[in-house]
Nucleic acid binder design. Structure first.
Length: 485
RNA sequence: GGUCUCGUGGCCGAGUGGCUAGGCAGAGCUCUGCAAAAGCUCGUACAGCGGUUCGAAUCCGCUCGAGACCUCCA
């Protein structure tokens, strides 16, 4: 390969060459979902983006430990309001951990539909309470947090005396201090910019644990600091998440790690962009989230039809992970057709015969594929290159072009590997047994016999009827094939 | 109000100082009994106005428009 992998590092605000701390090992931490409701399709995009990144790192031969947490501790909505998980539990009159269980299972099922690989470790916040309490104590001991009415707050002002709080999200502390909104009920804090690392629970709060400071629950940012450190070490390679987590979540995480462990948690910070719907960000809290189920069933007022998980995955991969992607029916339908054409080519690849000469240079074609992915995981370009491959495949199939045996093998392998292993695209199961194939072969044989005796009335009738039933008939040079519409 | 991002052909979406992105849709042609599929060709796009430059969609400034973060959020 001529090019090296480069990644856009939010911390540096530029694209940098990717150099793992301990090659061939790579530590990758991604902020996972809060399991208080179904994920929406925007969440799916983020995890699909990191799935692409994970898959490509694996493909390059790195030994990746991919950690993605499950946030199962509720966190405050805002003042005097109970947290999301407790609220949901109260509304549905069930245990908070039932909420957690239900939506964790749902999350896994959904991500499997979209063919994302499971992480190596998927730790939960509730299972790491002890570690979180320990980190709070450490930060307290170092004098960078203070206790107030049973809650513990991170002392941002004191921390920023010799640390650059705001380095990730590009804010400076003075502006932050001036611009922090004045919320009620923050009297416990010395300063509005301070954030809770332990919060005393109100009596009605259901999820709570005993800690030296109070019966309460940990601050939201804490779990990631603790779990990433526990499983990947104090400094690991890549920390990822949605752009919306840059501030305050990731900024606070860095501060906690610096304060508690004395070093920055990650070398590279990668942030994925949002999915918009009619130009607006999807957010659970805004009620603008379209769920994967609604997408797959088409059961949503703004959708004119259902879209399969692979169509959606392909659609997402056609945009770069750092760009916003807007959603509409026309674009999704285009993706559906394009995806089908791509997968048809994959199938056609197996029927190709090699020749004595090659009509293009496989290595050059491959090189561009890798160059695209090495450029900060540019999947849209990689897909464009794959479509160039589709054209080449069709030329071999229909126009008599050839590759030598070894070139054809190399091309086939690269083409398939990229689609299946790197992009994670699979043929949608048509839940056929061999029965349909057998039946179709028989019917098409009858039709070809009719054609042979120029009985076009019969052959067209068969084709039209099969068409109605959802099968598309194609008469090619090498015989007749069919596909589902 | 502060910080920042973006505005590309009918739609989605790459690129980013001079070289074809790609997909879908549309038009024409070839192949074919017809059709489908496929191949080839085409539209000459970069919000507007200035500036820098031999040359800008790409750099700078302004204007307009959209969005994100500053508060839970992927």
């Amino acid at each position: 390969m001529k090019t090296a992998l480069k990644v856009y590092n939010t911390l540096a605000r530029k694209t940098e060459e990717f150099q793992p701390i301990n090659p061939p090992f790579v530590g990758l931490y991604v902020c996972g979902p809060t399991v208080y409701s179904e994920v929406h399709i925007g969440n799916v995009r983020t995890f699909t983006s990191f799935d692409l990144i994970y898959r490509y790192l694996l493909h390059l031969g790195y030994k990746v430990r991919y950690v993605r947490n499950i946030t199962d501790v509720g966190h405050l909505l805002d003042d005097n309001e109970e947290d999301k998980i407790s609220k949901k539990a109260r509304l549905e009159n069930i245990e908070p951990m039932e909420v957690v269980q239900r939506y964790t299972v749902d999350f896994h099922k959904t991500m499997m539909l979209f063919n994302t690989l499971p992480p190596s470790i998927e730790p939960t916040a509730t299972a790491h309470l002890i570690e979180q309490i320990e980190l709070i104590q450490t930060i307290l001991d170092k004098g960078l947090a203070y206790e107030s009415n049973g809650s513990v707050y991170f002392d941002v002002l004191k921390y920023s005396a010799d640390h650059n709080y705001g380095e990730l999200s590009g804010r400076n502390i003075d502006e932050l201090l001036v611009n922090t909104r004045d919320l009620d009920g923050q009297d416990d804090k010395k300063h509005p910019a301070d954030f809770a690392i332990w919060k005393k629970a109100e009596p009605q709060h259901i999820m709570k644990w005993n800690a030296p400071w109070s019966l309460g629950f940990p601050g939201w940012h804490l779990e990631c600091s603790v779990m990433s450190t526990k499983y990947l070490g104090t400094t690991f390679d890549i920390h990822g998440g949605g752009m919306d987590l840059k501030f305050p979540h990731h900024e606070c995480e860095i501060a906690q790690n610096e304060a508690g462990y004395g070093c920055a948690p990650a070398k590279y910070w990668l942030h994925t962009n949002m999915l918009t719907f009619n130009g607006r960000k999807m957010a659970k809290s805004e009620g603008t989230g379209v769920t994967p189920k609604e997408m797959i069933t088409g059961n949503h007022p703004l959708l004119t039809q259902a879209y399969s998980p692979m169509t959606i995955r392909f659609f997402m991969l056609q945009a770069h992970y750092r760009s916003t992607l807007d959603f509409n029916n026309e674009a999704l339908q285009a993706a559906e057709k394009g995806f089908r054409r791509l997968m048809t080519a994959v199938k056609d690849l197996d029927g190709l015969k090699s020749g004595n000469t090659s009509f293009f240079t496989v290595e050059d074609w491959k090189e561009e594929l890798y160059a695209a992915m090495n450029d900060d995981f540019n999947s849209p370009i990689a897909i464009a290159q794959l479509f160039e491959g589709v054209r080449l495949i069709n030329l071999m199939k229909d126009q008599g072009e050839t590759l030598t045996e070894s070139d054809l093998a190399a091309f086939t392998s690269a083409f398939k590997t990229f689609i299946t292993d790197v992009l994670g695209l699979t043929t949608e199961e048509e839940n056929d047994s061999g029965e349909v194939d057998g039946l179709m072969d028989f019917i098409l044989q009858l039709r070809n016999e009719a054609k042979a005796r120029k009985d076009y009335a019969t052959s067209d009738e068969i084709r039209d009827k099969l068409n109605e039933l959802g099968f598309e008939i194609k008469d090619g040079k090498e015989g007749t094939t069919f596909s589902r519409k």
